[in-house]
Nucleic acid binder design. Structure first.
Lengths: 126, 126
DNA sequence: ATATGGGTTAGAGTAAACTCTAAGTCAAAT
DNA sequence: ATTTGACTTAGAGTTTACTCTAACCCATAT
């Protein structure tokens, strides 16, 4: 069981952000007798997953949608499946772009190194 | 040689965006006798590269910096090299996150499919 | 006693990257 | 003649995802 501050620390987000996610109904932690938010292990896992979705460019609106469907129960399973499959495709596209660009950069970096080397040889000779 | 509208079409950006990039000194196309922007093949290649950087999460400020260093001449080659190497690292981190999340999604998707299948079997039997 | 960390509402502010509007000009094509 | 696509300046507006402030309350730890 974690307080908001502990969760913030653990996940590297601010307490502001956690309250904002709650306002957006992305996570709904429990409360203790004082009204303080209490996050369980499963809340933490949920948040971690959400942050992975965010890191992989899923917009907050989609994450909200997923969370909403979740609260709506089992009959939304197909919708959630669809949403996750769409995101999987998106990730595959991103991977493609990143791999391509990675290759381009490797080439450019090699060229730059050669260029600098030749230039510096020239300087040494002069 | 391309007009701004042609470049916009080819690259899938708006003419607004191209003028904005020019204001930000990311691309500086030539002009014809009427003052219309004229983009050469190399301008196009430059833009394509910039868009790849953008797609791989390089902020516009960094792209501007790279463009600025370029205009400053050969003595900035080491700085440009450093910038590209940093971005290569960033891409490697993104790849890691995406691959991890891709795996997570594959698992979740499998679970969902099983869950839906079992549920529908139940319905058929009832 | 006071500092720390938690709570609230309501709303303002921020940064990034566009995106668009107004209001006018100019040239080529139909 | 008019539509189309180009140009200009200057600045306003939009979206996303926070981020923070005010102003006040409550409980635990030092």
């Amino acid at each position: 069981m974690y307080t908001i501050g502990e969760v913030a620390q653990l996940l590297g987000v601010s307490t502001h952000t956690l309250r904002y996610y709650e306002k957006e109904k992305i996570i709904l932690p429990d409360r203790n007798e004082h009204g303080d938010r209490i996050y369980s292990e499963s809340h933490l896992q949920w948040l971690k997953f959400d942050l992975k979705l965010k890191e992989t460019q899923m917009p907050i609106t989609k994450i909200k949608e997923y969370a909403y469907l979740y609260t709506e129960g089992e009959h939304t399973a197909i919708n959630r499946l669809k949403l996750l499959e769409d995101h999987k495709s998106s990730i595959e596209n991103q991977l493609k772009t990143l791999e391509e660009t990675h290759k381009m950069l490797e080439h450019k970096i090699t060229s730059y190194k050669e260029m600098i080397l030749k230039r510096d040889e020239g300087v040494t000779k002069a």
